[in-house]
Computed example of a mutant assay.
Amino acid sequence: MAQNQQPIFQTKPQEHFVQIPINIERDSTTLINQTGNSSRKPNHWPTIILSIIFVIVGQSIAKLLENFYYDQIHRSDYDEKRQNDGVWTQSLLQTVGFPLLLLPFIILTTKNHNQPPINSDRFHYKSLAVIYICIGIIMSVQGRLSALGKLEIPFSVFTLIYTAQLIFTPIFARLINKVKFNRWIVISLILAVVTGALTNSTSFGGEPDEAEENYATGSWAALFAGVCFSLLLCNIQNVFDNYIFKRTESTTRKPSFASVFEVLIFSSLVATIISAVGLLIAGEHDDLKREMNGFSKGKGSYVMAMVGQAVSWQIYWVGVVGLVFSVSSVLSNVISVITWPIVSVLVVIFFNFMDDEFDVFKGVALITAALSAAAYFYRLHKENRDSGN
């Protein structure tokens, strides 16, 4: 059965889409084409909800374990010579867990193994190989800059600057993905910016001593980390729109969630190699042994903290890229940022950094986060309701 879908970012009606059975796929029972690209299929609510859960759970656990790691190695103690130890390690932890994605990738891809080959597959794979290398480079740079910025300037300042990613993402989305915006998306973005800014009262276990602060280096690192994250999301959306979805539009193939794992596995492989090489060149592999031996909770806890971060980051990335796959880079960035207040509250509950407590800023941030999500999803609901009339 065919049905008309109204795009969220434009007023021109979409072409008819063939309905796809409900699965973890783009599904014509739901929603929207946000980019105006005819190859992008309508979204699927269960996939969106599952991706949001992955973002919240993955980012929350990863950040808690990161705080636990810095707290147990006594990073807050003044030691200017070792101030930036571990920046490559933290970058590596964000991508090194990608082999965990191989099993779900294989399972989802084998479901379509009987589909006929596409004549342009060879061209697409060559182009995608180059793009995945570029995305992997951006991932490794973003991870290192983010880790560096948090160790150079107070976390409140880092958060304010890093929130600028919500400004760059719509710009890149417009230039790269040709996204058009409506008032509800703009409202959601504004509320998300406010949410990110209000989480500046969050404490961080690796925050530098006042004598170690380097505002010039830290501020630029935070800014470019935000730019890299925005560029990363928009380039991933470009991969979906112009390569992965287009290679299925003229066939009976369905745009499957397996493409999310495809993007992550190959890009993370590149990022992991770069971060591992950087770690070896910087000599951080020697620091890992020293940290393990001096870890306050013991070697077992150290290993669990590091492995836990690697696993949690993969959960987070599946959610982030899943939202790009399901909706757009803009929603993915919004959900990623409005998760920060949740992390902030969890840090208060599980840690005691400088008498950190649940203050009015954290409370307001939770409210604006909820309003930001509500604004975005009201538009999705409205489009879904209108399309059913």
Rank of each mutant, 00 (worst) to 15 (best):
M1P: 03
Q3M: 12
I8T: 10
K12C: 05
V18M: 01
V18S: 00
T35R: 12
G36I: 13
S39Q: 09
R40W: 03
R40K: 08
P46H: 07
F54K: 08
V55F: 08
G58I: 07
I73Q: 05
H74R: 10
R75S: 08
R75Q: 12
R75E: 01
E80V: 05
E80S: 09
K81Y: 10
R82F: 04
N84V: 02
V87G: 01
W88T: 00
Q90L: 09
T95K: 02
P104N: 03
F105T: 03
F105Y: 15
T109W: 14
T110R: 12
K111H: 12
N114P: 11
D121T: 12
F123W: 08
Y125P: 00
L128H: 00
V130A: 13
Y132R: 00
I133N: 04
I133E: 01
G136R: 07
S140H: 06
R144W: 15
L145F: 15
S146N: 15
G149H: 13
L151D: 04
V157E: 13
F158M: 09
I161R: 15
I161D: 15
I167S: 07
T169Y: 01
I176G: 04
I176L: 12
I185N: 03
V186N: 06
S188N: 08
S188K: 01
T195A: 12
N200Y: 00
G205K: 04
G206T: 01
P208L: 00
A211M: 14
E213F: 02
A221W: 12
L223S: 15
C228S: 09
C228A: 08
F229R: 15
F229Q: 14
S230W: 05
C234K: 02
N238F: 14
N238A: 08
D241N: 10
Y243N: 06
I244A: 03
T251W: 15
R253M: 07
F257I: 13
S259R: 09
S267C: 03
S267R: 06
V270Y: 01
I273A: 09
S275D: 13
G278A: 02
G278C: 04
A282Q: 00
D287Y: 13
K289Y: 05
K299C: 04
G300W: 13
Y302K: 14
V303S: 04
V307K: 04
V307H: 10
I315F: 14
S329K: 11
S332P: 09
V334I: 12
I335M: 11
T339Q: 13
W340K: 08
F358K: 14
D359N: 15
V360R: 06
K362I: 14
G363N: 14
I367E: 04
S372D: 07
Y376N: 03
Y376D: 00
Y378K: 10
E383C: 10
G388V: 11
N389G: 07
